[in-house]
Simulated assay, not measured.
Amino acid sequence: MRTFIDKDLYLGSQLELIKLIVKNINDEIKTAYYAINSDCMLKYWNDKEYRDIIDKKDNISYVDGMGVIYAQKILNLPVAKERIATTDLFPELMNYLNMHKINLNIFLLGGEQDTAETVKRNFSEIYPNVNIVGTHHGYFNKDTDSKSIIDIINSLDVNVLFVGFGNPLQEKWVEKHLFLLEVNSIITCGGLFDYYANNVKRAPIIFQKTGFEWLFRLFQEPRRLYKRYIYGNLNYVVKILFMKLNS
């Protein structure tokens, strides 16, 4: 059995991470930011390509899941100050940039047709000082169309690129095209755009804080998510207990 993770996870608060993102942009440090939850950990243990991406020292992986925090406590590992859900990080980053009038260009890549564009429209009204300079849906041929889409992104002088293809496809896409992307910060975000285009409802706060947001999502989409959340969560718990017993 592998150790929990062969990489130091980011343990700071959400605000600290936002400030780090802005600092790395100002310092022209090209960085990819990846969220880690229990489902990501299952993929990490079983998918070497994905594991190698997460383990790269230049990438920053932050804790987006109470299951990871519980595991850190059970295994006596350094514990994150808080869960940083990318669904929360996205609007808080926008709010920070808007409030401090920090002029950065943002591009939203992912979701179905018009989903990212709807998010752009909604957030431009709420945060008028934020520059969402472009969007593109995520249902394009990753082998044949990626170069032309990257050319569009590069032409817009983008500072922050959000990529929402789902894990681990989005991380593998970023890693494959990182050398082509002339972008300071890349943040993978899964199905985030669906929440802010009002396609999917977010779980109540009590579910988010206690680690049961997955249960709310399961109730919303049982046929699509039951394997991930029923079998996946059980498998995750068994692995953590096995690690504890063998530590």
Rank of each mutant, 00 (worst) to 15 (best):
I84H: 02
T86R: 00
N76I: 00
V130R: 01
G134W: 01
K142M: 10
E117T: 07
Y139F: 15
Y139N: 12
I84S: 04
P128C: 04
N76R: 09
K101T: 05
F123G: 03
N141Q: 12
N95Q: 15
K147F: 14
Q113T: 12
F90G: 08
N131P: 07
N103M: 03
N105W: 03
Y139W: 15
D143N: 14
D145Q: 15
N129I: 05
N105Y: 01
Y96N: 00
T115D: 07
R83F: 06
G111Y: 01
G138R: 08
G134A: 08
L109M: 12
A80T: 05
G111F: 07
Y96F: 15
Y96I: 06
I149S: 11
H137L: 01
N141T: 12
N122D: 11
V79P: 00
S124T: 12
L104H: 02
D145C: 11
V119Y: 10
N76A: 07
F140D: 14
V133M: 07
T87D: 04
T87F: 05
I132T: 09
E117C: 06
A116V: 03
Y127W: 12
V119E: 09
H137K: 06
L89T: 02
D145I: 12
K120H: 09
S148M: 15
L109K: 05
N98I: 03
S146F: 09
D143V: 11
F123L: 14
